[in-house]
Design a protein around this nucleic acid. Sequence first.
RNA 1: UCCCGGGUAGUUCAACUGGCAGAACGCCGGCCUUUGGAGCCGGAUGUUGCAGGUUCGAGCCCUGCCCCGGGAACCA
Length: 561
Amino acid sequence: MTPSPHDETTPTEGPSDFIREKIDADLAAGRFDRVQTRFPPEPNGYLHIGHAKSICLNFGLAEQYGGPCLLRFDDTNPVAEDPEYVDAIIDDIRWLGFEPTDVVHASDYFDQLYAWAEELVGKGLAYVDDQDAETISAQRGGFGEPGVESPFRDRTPEENLGLLRQMRDGAFADGEKVLRAKIDMSASVMTMRDPVLYRIRRLPHHRTEDRWVIYPTYDWAHGQSDAIEGVTHSLCTLEFADHRPLYDWCLEHLELPHDKPEQTEFARLGLTHTVMSKRLLRTLVEDGVVDGWDDPRMPTLRGMRKRGYPPEAIRAFVDEIGVAKTNSTVEIELLESHVRRHHNAHALRRMVVLDPVKVVITNWPDGQVEHVEAVNNPEDESAGTRQVPFSGELWIERDDFMADPPPKYYRLTPGREVRLRAGYFITATDAVTDADGNVTEIRATYDPETKGGQAPDGRKVKATIHWVSAAHAEDLTVHLYERLFTDSHPGTEGDAFDSLNPASRETVSAKGEPALADVTPGEVVQLERLGYFAVDPDDTRTLHRTVGLRDEWANIQKRKG
RNA sequence: UCCCGGGUAGUUCAACUGGCAGAACGCCGGCCUUUGGAGCCGGAUGUUGCAGGUUCGAGCCCUGCCCCGGGAACCA
């Protein structure tokens, strides 16, 4: 496909931000002569749009500077981790359009990590502490208050080494002992107050199985993993800034195979009307608020995929929002705008009536069926045309007719002529209503001279509406989605779930033109005047609304209301 | 209370390291239109957190203050 100027971001110029500036400076100063990044998820959940920012950053940087970017599973804590997530994460990254240079695991380095721990102990820079978690935590002190040193802090390196080996060999119960770095219990940064490096967990690991009963903490594993792989720029989110002194401390006391990597923090992505924390997302799934991690209302990559968000749009969105250190919540409309921009260029146009009401064309020859030619995509001539059956009984959208319309309503109303898209001009004559006043049938006449939608005398109509021939209609189920949370910043005050939108999904039975029989799973089509819709991956008779089109009439209504 | 970040249109980011504060999305108005879509043209939006200081000139440098976020798991 040929990218139009407003389609996918062209990587020629590349965005500029403080991280790229830092990399350029490092390169210029000879600090590094190459660039290597990594994406290090913990396999304990599904990826969401926030991760996409990190993925695009890390893989994008590697691409831009011609270096590797590994996918590394940070699997140092078997409590929450599950191999189920490993495959899903790889799959999501590929879907986004990135291919890791290699897929590795922090657990691949357990031997080296342990050897380094013994090295640290030998240097008198780590010790085994017999106290329990609660005691250690209490001794850490508070903000502005120094901590107190553990009574086990001054064990000799020999004693510590023996104890550490016993820990490794399973001589102690879970929680009975930990290995701690010996740094400074009065450090102003909490993470430097003798952080825990190893804990005992008699739990099978998804890769090392039962080979280990001690597992390294994040702080003991992360920087070293970076160093082992040869990462130059280790990018993480803002909340890890306090860990940077510890990241550096660990690496400075070890013999490294490569130059010491540098950690740089950036702000995570927030989206309006969305929650991003794994805990909250899990609750949505477990409480049945949504159907699962891939529910189209979820901000997960799987959810967005099912919803019909193209990876190109997500990448263009991430490029546009840039990367900085300011906490940010981006308006979801910006993402949606990229989604529309992409589909506008690529999606085939189709006609579906979501809320059907019958139109009977009283002067149409009885039983006659004609075919009219409709353009598949006005943005892309190569998409061609299709034949759409036209007959004397049609479905149109209920709100495209009003017996008694307000001003500036351009659509069908008694006595007014409108165009049926790619079909004929019709003029409403009257409407049949039921006892409650609901319209059950609209009666109209057509002008046989206007086939294809043009009048030979050049007269204009103010509105064009979509339609489906009743006898040829495909029955469809269509899910219409609204924001999951009504509050733009759910949870900022009070419980996020208080602003859950009870009407975040509406399901309707719709009538589609015959071409809807030929859609493929996952395909996104534009339903004329309605929006973009994704075909369900498992049921081609079901559509999910990706995003609506901008609708000026709806805006007029909103302003009046 | 201590440490680290951060504060520029509604929102997200720029502003070439001191030289006329801009872009995108959103919003408003118009044009055009066989999608009230798309597209095109135009417009508004700011006490650059506050107060001082240096300077011919400060969003940028200095001083003091205010506000917001993060940090005291054997989570990551």
